[in-house]
Design a protein around this nucleic acid. Structure first.
Lengths: 189, 189
DNA sequence: GTCTATAATTCGATAGAC
DNA sequence: GTCTATCGAATTATAGAC
């Protein structure tokens, strides 16, 4: 594939990545992606076999972004406690988008889980990455209980926060719940 | 409207209520509702002006169901603590469906919030009912802090539980998180 | 009130010129 | 590789017979 072609392919993935988050997968049409990317609808089938294949590429991109993010946090901080804080601060930094569109992982899994189980399996992998990484950090903390369970607890609170913040369009829900989570984590400092 | 007509109208609402939960609003077609209700597609426009109006009727039905449920719990139990337990036990009783389709309130609000803000306003009312009722119960408990904040905390945990249980298709997430919530509430017994 | 037929539009996907 | 034109299926919604 030529440089230009690779560029176009990545452009489609980037625009689709945004629109699948903002509008949802099923509510995003080829026309939507074509308009924002300035690439004609018909050309999509030179780069991808189907709409599902675009989503697969989008999820792969998200997975690689998450891996890079987690590796970055590992490099930036030595203590598992500080690393977990990174995760909480991420949700606080993304508050504006969480309120507008919910969590990109959570909303995609909910949408796909209803009618597209095969695609949901791929979307679930995003959760797997965060969960495994969080469990690893909790394992390194001196706590007797199951580290995987702590990871699940943290994900539950982050996802619940996203749903309520989006439903009520209320930033206070994000600030209050992140503060509560940070307070809960302090006992492991 | 005749008895037969009212019966048909309610039948459409009931089937649509189920399908909007199982498949999502936008992924449910008139054909889907027609097949399951044995009412021809064209007749829908005798009872409703549009698909949006069917959703409005579905949400109104859900709101009235919730009101009846909350009134029932109020009548059944005198202590606010026991009433709050009813809410937790409801989510545990609905575990099977939570795993398959997520929370009916949460998933609908997430879907509509992306592209149909006007309809989301209606769906949000379901949260309002539970939140106000929970806040009222917490207010009657002897706790110094803000009762509305406690209601939000409980909704956050229930919604997060639903998202993760659905994503992982795991019943243990429901049993473990409901147990944790019950343990958290015990200090208010 | 009930039903069939169909309009009008949009969707994902394809064909073929250049 | 790039683009236009268009297909067939599905969608919501309407018209009109009975």
């Amino acid at each position: 594939m030529s440089d230009k072609a690779t560029l176009n392919r990545n452009r489609i993935i980037d625009i689709a990545n945004q629109l699948f988050y903002f509008r949802g997968f099923n509510q995003t049409s080829f026309t939507d992606i074509a308009e924002q990317s300035a690439i004609p609808r018909g050309n999509f089938y030179y780069y991808f076999k189907s709409k599902d294949e675009i989503l697969e590429a989008v999820i792969e991109k998200r997975l690689s972004d998450i891996r890079r993010q987690l590796t970055g946090w590992d490099a930036q901080f030595e203590s598992p406690y500080e690393r977990i804080i990174c995760f909480i601060e991420m949700t606080r930094d993304e508050a504006e988008q969480l309120i507008k569109y919910g969590c990109p992982m959570g909303s995609l899994n909910m949408e796909l889980g209803k009618t597209q189980p095969e695609l949901k399996k791929l979307a679930k992998q995003m959760f797997d990455l965060y969960k495994a990484w969080l469990a690893k950090q909790f394992a390194q903390l001196r706590i007797a209980e199951d580290p995987e369970d702590f990871a699940t607890q943290l994900l539950i609170r982050a996802q619940g926060m996203a749903v309520l913040a989006h439903t009520y369009g209320d930033r206070a829900i994000v600030t209050q719940e992140t503060a509560r989570i940070l307070h809960w984590l302090e006992e492991f400092k």
